[in-house]
Design a binder for these strands. Structure first.
Length: 573
RNA sequence: GGGCCCAUAGCGUAGUCAGGAUAGCGCAACUGGCUUCUAACCAGUAGGUCGUGGGUUCAAAUCCCACUGGGCCCGCCA
């Protein structure tokens, strides 16, 4: 897209008799628009020629032939700054948004690739908590972003629905449940089951022997004991129903849902293969992958008694994923505390000589901490997902009530969209490598660098377009527009930013970093709001058509960006 | 003992991979702006040894080394 830069580089390269690609790499975008649209720093050349960089900049500016689209070239100290012909540039950018609409910003860098993104991955013994919301926000956003870049994305979930932890909630239920159902107590199934997990854990503190009881039950489960299986089916279905409700509310979507119970016992051939190749070894603790010579700790794959652990499932499931879906890449969105685990998993596949080992990626993100420390489901020390969503919506409703007297059905729909936007944007705007110290007031803030702020910016833009009465005629207006009137610094900056959108999306896809899209949207919103205040688009009954087109381009870009983050836009707020 | 991640104003955060022009921004504080296209906004004031110490460079928040502080992980939890 950025042909301007290329052409400028070519011209500089000609003057200096240099390689144009090298020149292109050194061209920068100045910190401020009034310095120009592109800048060529002369430090490198100065060093080579052992001359003063300011002098070189001056010489370049004298010798250079001004490309057609460049309005002006100015020397500022050691920089040669280029000013684009803004009217041509504005026209090119706006026409692109106008014709591409909801596809504006789409890229083809991942065209033809099939990528699976596994995220959320809850345990079916307790409700979802705030950590899952960070996970889901990242998982959904990165899926959308990869898809926008041309990939075929398969969103996958994995229910960890068997194992010692599941048995613990079952034992808790047997002891304290009195055969009741979630309906009896009128609470969501996941919350209902979670209570028994906490009760069991409390008992466990008093009596560590209970750990063995859980393993005993796990053995029965693996031996398909009828009673244990029936209870398990029943409790799992309660929990999963609860999950599905929360996912629906939050907007987490999955194309395929895997269950650990379908895969835990299917790693047999892989394990035999490893034993044969002497990569695995039977020891007194179970079957162990020997990884020490590769700088990783050894990893137990199967307990001595033959029962499975978490990695047993991932061994068979990963192979299954690549076989069945012919993936070009598999991404796991999982907390950073499991980094080593994934290194081990991927290493095992590499040692087993599976070509797909190279195509596995762990998208790691840091944890969410409470002021008093880590989230601990066992102790009930969590921020519950449903409760957080509820609080966010409540706060949104309060804000709406401040602005409207009569609350309509539409307002109730709006509070949902605003509340969710706050949570999702909060989860996505920071670098995934940074831990979040949870403070509910920060998580559901609507002012400043927040989701609702971006939504509000969009609503403002749409309001102008609505009131102009020209929404349907934008494409005709365009033909007679004179873009040289968009000549303020604010306007030029906005146009530049809109032009950068696709590049931001691509970078975000390449580095699996949705926070880049958030930062971009904040910047665009900030510039737009400044512009909004500094000038009027509709004055009495006269509409500034060029500005209106710019407003449209902003609104469409924000909409496309928010959609990537799985955040709804509102026409009115 | 080993490995990974983080450190930027009272708090939070961008910029670090690809070193350059006054280190952007938000919250909180203070001042000002709604009979106007929506004030969930905007303008302004104040607040910074970019964890510490070295090194590389014409130039370091950014690259390299050492250290300090915090978090996470290190064979039968997930």
């Amino acid at each position: 897209m950025d042909n301007y830069k290329k052409n400028i580089a070519e011209e500089i390269a000609r003057v200096l008799d240099k390689n144009k690609n090298e020149v292109e790499k050194t061209i920068e975008i100045p910190p401020s628009k009034d310095l120009g649209d592109y800048a060529f720093p002369c430090f490198h050349i100065a060093k080579e020629l052992k001359k003063n960089p300011n002098e070189i900049a001056r010489q370049i500016s004298e010798k250079i032939k001004k490309p057609e689209f460049v309005r002006d070239i100015k020397v500022v100290g050691p920089y040669v700054n280029f000013f684009l012909d803004e009217s041509e540039f504005a026209k090119a950018v706006i026409v692109r948004v106008l014709t591409e609409g909801k596809n504006y910003g789409k890229s083809k860098i991942l065209h033809g690739k099939t990528i699976m993104v596994e995220y959320s991955a809850p345990n079916t013994n307790k409700p979802l908590h705030v950590g899952h919301l960070r996970n889901d926000s990242i998982g959904m956003a990165i899926s959308n972003i990869l898809c926008f870049c041309g990939a075929k994305v398969i969103k996958a979930n994995l229910y960890s629905d068997r194992g010692a932890h599941i048995c613990k909630s079952m034992i808790g239920y047997l002891k304290y449940g009195n055969n009741k159902t979630p309906e009896d107590e009128n609470i969501k199934g996941d919350h209902f089951v979670g209570k028994f997990y906490v009760l069991f854990s409390k008992d466990l503190e008093q009596n560590p022997e209970l750990e063995k009881e859980a393993i005993e039950m796990l053995k029965k489960w693996e031996n398909k004991d009828k009673e244990v299986r029936e209870l398990w089916e029943k409790m799992n279905s309660w929990v999963i129903k609860g999950f599905e409700e929360t996912y629906k509310k939050f907007g987490s979507k999955f194309d395929v849902v895997f269950k650990e119970s379908d895969f835990y016992d299917k790693a047999g051939s892989l394990i035999e293969e490893g034993l044969k190749k002497k990569i695995f070894k039977e020891t007194d603790v179970g079957i162990v992958a020997l990884l020490e010579q590769y700088g990783l700790p050894n990893k137990v794959l199967l307990r001595k008694d033959g029962t499975s652990i978490y990695i047993t499932t991932d061994l068979s499931l990963t192979k299954y994923k690549f076989d069945k879906y012919k993936l070009d890449e598999a991404i796991w969105v999982v907390g950073s505390e499991q980094k080593l685990y994934f290194q081990q998993l991927f290493k095992i596949f590499e040692l087993l000589n599976y070509e797909f080992a190279k195509k596995c990626k762990h998208l790691s993100y840091e944890m969410i901490y409470l002021p008093e420390g880590r989230l601990k489901s066992r102790e009930g020390k969590v921020v519950d997902a449903d409760e957080l969503i509820e609080s966010a919506e409540e706060k949104a409703l309060e804000e709406i009530k401040k602005r409207y007297q009569n609350i309509t059905k539409e307002h109730l729909e709006r509070k949902r969209a605003i509340g969710l936007a706050a949570i999702k944007f909060f989860m996505l705007k920071v670098d995934p490598n940074k831990p979040i110290f949870f403070d509910i007031n920060k998580a559901i803030e609507f002012e400043g660098e927040t989701g609702p702020y971006v939504q509000y910016t969009y609503a403002r833009a749409k309001s102008i377009i609505r009131k102009s009465g020209l929404e349907k005629e934008l494409k005709n207006i365009f033909k007679s527009a004179d873009f040289s009137s968009l000549d303020s610094i604010e306007e030029k900056e906005i146009i530049s930013l809109i032009n950068e959108f696709q590049q931001v999306v691509e970078e975000s896809a390449k580095s699996l970093a949705p926070d880049k899209v958030c930062q971009y949207l904040l910047k665009l919103s900030e510039k737009f709001n400044k512009f909004y205040h500094s000038c009027k688009i509709i004055q009495s009954d006269k509409v500034d058509l060029e500005k209106l087109l710019l407003v449209y381009a902003v609104s469409q870009t924000i909409k496309n960006g928010l959609e990537l983050l799985n955040i709804e836009t509102l026409e009115e707020m």
